[in-house]
Computed example of a mutant assay.
Amino acid sequence: MRLRVTISTRAREIPWDQVQAPGRGVFYEALERQDPQLGATIHANGWGPHGIAPFGHSAPTFPTPKRQEGKYVAGGTGTVEFGSPIPEIITALAKDFTTIPVLDWGGTALKVEKTTVVDPPAFASGRGRFRTINPITVKAEATRTPEGRVIRGKHLLPGEPGFDVALQHSIRRKCETFGHGSDVQLEGITWIGPKRSFAVTGHGHWGKKLGAPIEVEVSGPPAALQALWSTGIGGSTASGFGWVVA
């Protein structure tokens, strides 16, 4: 399930370090106003057995302005989307965004014009093709040395050795988080886009992550595929990574 927010702005561009990063804060501020207990629980513990943040979001997009090299252009009417398979989250966001006139997107004022709840596709065939509009990032699993020392897994880019294994693991963990089991399979990676880095924030930290948009084919129970469509795929979806084109 997604909440599509129609927005408008007089700004002509959004600074690159504010394209994705503000979404996480906008999400938690909305929950704090509408369902503070739910927001505090998610912020502290995540969701489900793996403690994953149970939501994702897009960057604001504006179809009218012409692209300009080196700039993330804005202006006129556009959209920004938030998604989660947890209905209470979407309900809280929808209520909040209908009571505030403007979203503060890292200093860019986005006027809220309307909100629309969008249900996921049925995925009745048990297969889905997901293309991300934002870069995707995944992290390899941690390993142990013979002495028992834990070596943290490194972040992997699409096309690097081990990426498909790490993405398969990430997809299964996400489906387990929402109670859909682990019977989900990455069938293939059909496209890899250009590498890009975006700023991320969370738990008092700021930094940049590098990734690349991709298209993948996944098979599994329809409800599991709907959860992936709702939150995005890969890691750091709460920071806007891995958002799937509707």
Rank of each mutant, 00 (worst) to 15 (best):
E81R: 04
I86V: 14
L93R: 02
A94H: 11
A94C: 03
T98K: 12
T99E: 15
I100F: 01
G107T: 02
T108Y: 05
T108D: 00
A109P: 08
L110R: 07
K111L: 10
V112Q: 02
T115S: 08
T115P: 04
T115E: 05
T115A: 08
V118Q: 08
D119A: 13
P120H: 07
P120N: 06
P120M: 04
G126Y: 03
G128H: 08
G128Q: 09
F130E: 07
N134F: 05
A140G: 12
E141D: 14
E141A: 15
A142I: 00
T145F: 02
P146H: 06
R149E: 14
R149T: 14
V150N: 05
R152F: 10
R152C: 00
K154Y: 04
K154I: 09
H155M: 10
L156G: 09
E160Y: 05
P161H: 04
G162K: 09
L167A: 01
S170M: 01
S170C: 11
I171Q: 02
I171W: 07
K174R: 15
T177L: 08
G179E: 09
G179A: 00
S182L: 07
D183W: 10
D183M: 02
V184M: 01
L186Y: 00
G188L: 04
I189P: 08
I189L: 08
T190D: 06
H203R: 15
G204R: 12
G204W: 09
G204E: 11
H205K: 15
W206Y: 15
G207E: 00
K209V: 15
L210M: 13
P213L: 08
